[in-house]
Design a protein around this nucleic acid. Structure first.
Length: 429
RNA sequence: GGAGAAAUACCCAAGUCUGGUUGAAGGGACCGGUCUUGAAAACCGGGAGGUCGGAAACGGCGCGGGGGUUCGAAUCCCUCUUUCUCCGCCA
């Protein structure tokens, strides 16, 4: 949600931004909002005048009652009744127009950063930089699910029976490797000065509405029956929701947090579930970074944050690249975003393992998260980024460390989390 | 789950019984000064309070959220949320 003042003062810029995102059908919204906004302010003025009149007369009635001039007071009361009738129709209109403006404003995309490459869809996303040599070994890398199954580390069949498609059992060393990467990610971010957080894994409906659109909510969130509770799709939901309606002293900024949570996603729509593997599933675990900062610092944090993820994967010896989201592929709330993609030596291409976004003040505006500065209160900036999401990241780690004999070499930094183990190999029982 | 108490501005807090110059007292924090080598403490002085409309004057709204009663609600009623105390239950 952008500041409506942008439409009052610079609507051409807002329109230009919509064009950059190839959402021309939304262009009329800008003029519509502008018109409604003028109408609303007019109504507000009329209403305020009536309310002022009512307040004045009411306090007059008060003094008359004290002086026991009951008749005069009663006739004044009738005047106020008349005013209230008029007010009622105005207030109804006000409410209606207000809602209309709000729903239209929700559809107008956030102003993207000028550095964002222009493009229609994800095919026009731009590779920024590669880190590490994408190695293709001279032996074939099997499909990740097959590798895991061979090592008795994955059971999707049983999970299908207990929970359905999109669920999985991780077993033994593979399960341990999964938790090791998350534990390592946690410590990695703590060492970067982030505060470790474990948030609620369920949130109420009003918080859900604050952090995502209705469309997203439908396609992502699992609702608990007979409760006003939803399973979170990412800890960002809980972590941003935590600050809803808060006023934070600017001296306390930036707030840098790294949160762990399981994530639950329906994955209804566009992509759907992947047949066999663990790339797209209903349940995964994630170590996240969430930053609240002053607007002027947000680009610095954005750059630091995706670099942390790159550094993280490089410390696991996984080659990665950063892919910048082009204007058309950028979600409406975002100012700028990039994916960190890991190398898949099997597919001989990169695949998404994390996503770093700066939302400017859009999310803060929606949720009323402000900072207190010497020159007054203003909305702050919010950013989020994946440190690691597993089992997706497990795919990258396993493929890049797969040995010709079918074993998996455990990256050095993870060994201490695996009881000193250096490789995972099949146990013959 | 049961019973009670509470929620007031950045923080603390009066007002709620008895609705009407309280559209929010008083503090603290904040700013200026005296004192001090400097600071703290103490004392003196000061403006603003959140938000919306307005160039401004000014005005609207705002006392946890949402409804209601009333000419008028921080104050009365309903409802939801949260916190605290006690009881019950349970990893």
């Amino acid at each position: 949600m952008i500041d409506i003042r942008l439409i009052r003062e610079n609507k051409e810029m807002v329109k230009e931004n919509i064009k950059k995102k190839f959402q021309d059908s939304k262009l009329p919204l800008v003029d519509e909002v502008e018109k409604l906004d003028i109408e609303l302010r007019q109504l507000k003025l009329e209403g305020d005048n009536l309310r002022q009149e009512r307040n004045t007369i009411s306090s007059e009635i008060g003094s008359l009652m004290r002086d026991k001039k009951l008749e005069e007071a009663n006739s004044k009361k009738l005047e106020v009744v008349e005013i209230n009738k008029k007010l009622q129709t105005i207030e109804e209109k006000e409410e209606k127009i207000n809602q209309e403006i709000k729903s239209k404003m929700m559809l107008i995309p956030n102003i993207i950063d000028e550095s964002v490459p222009i493009g229609k869809d994800d095919s026009e996303n731009v590779e920024i930089e590669k880190f590490g040599e994408p190695i293709v070994p001279n032996y074939e890398i099997p499909y990740h699910a097959d590798i895991m199954e061979k090592l008795s580390g994955l059971d999707k069949e049983s999970a299908g029976r207990t929970s359905g498609n999109g669920f999985y059992y991780l077993m033994g060393d593979i399960a341990r490797l999964h938790e090791a990467t998350i534990a390592y990610a946690r410590d990695f971010m703590i060492n970067k000065g982030f505060t470790y957080c474990i948030p609620p894994f369920m949130i109420r409906g009003d918080v859900v509405n604050g952090v995502m659109s209705f469309a997203e909510m439908d396609s992502m969130m699992y609702k608990i029956e007979n409760e006003d509770l939803y399973l979170i799709g990412t800890s960002e939901h809980s972590m941003i929701g935590k600050f809803k309606g808060e006023l934070i002293d600017e001296k306390e900024l930036p707030i840098t947090m790294t949160s762990y949570s399981p994530c639950f996603r329906k994955e209804v729509g566009a992509h759907g579930l992947e047949e066999r593997g663990l790339y797209r599933v209903h349940q995964f675990e994630k170590q996240e970074m969430v930053v609240l900062c002053k607007p002027e610092d947000s680009m610095d944090w954005y750059n630091k944050m995706w670099q942390f993820t790159v550094e993280f994967f490089r410390s696991l010896d996984v080659p990665v690249r950063t892919l910048e989201c082009c204007s058309g592929d950028l979600a409406d709330l975002k100012v700028k975003s990039c994916d960190v993609e890991a190398w898949s030596p099997r597919q001989k291409k990169y695949f998404e393992v994390g996503s770093c976004s700066t939302l400017g003040d859009a999310q803060a505006r929606r949720l009323g998260i402000r900072m207190k500065t010497e020159s007054g209160n203003q909305f702050l900036s919010t950013l989020n980024n994946t440190v690691i999401a597993s089992p997706r990241a497990l795919i990258a780690i396993i493929e890049n460390n797969y040995q010709e004999d079918g074993s998996i070499k455990i990256p050095k930094v993870l060994q201490q989390y695996m009881g000193g183990k250096e490789k995972i190999e099949k146990k013959y029982i």
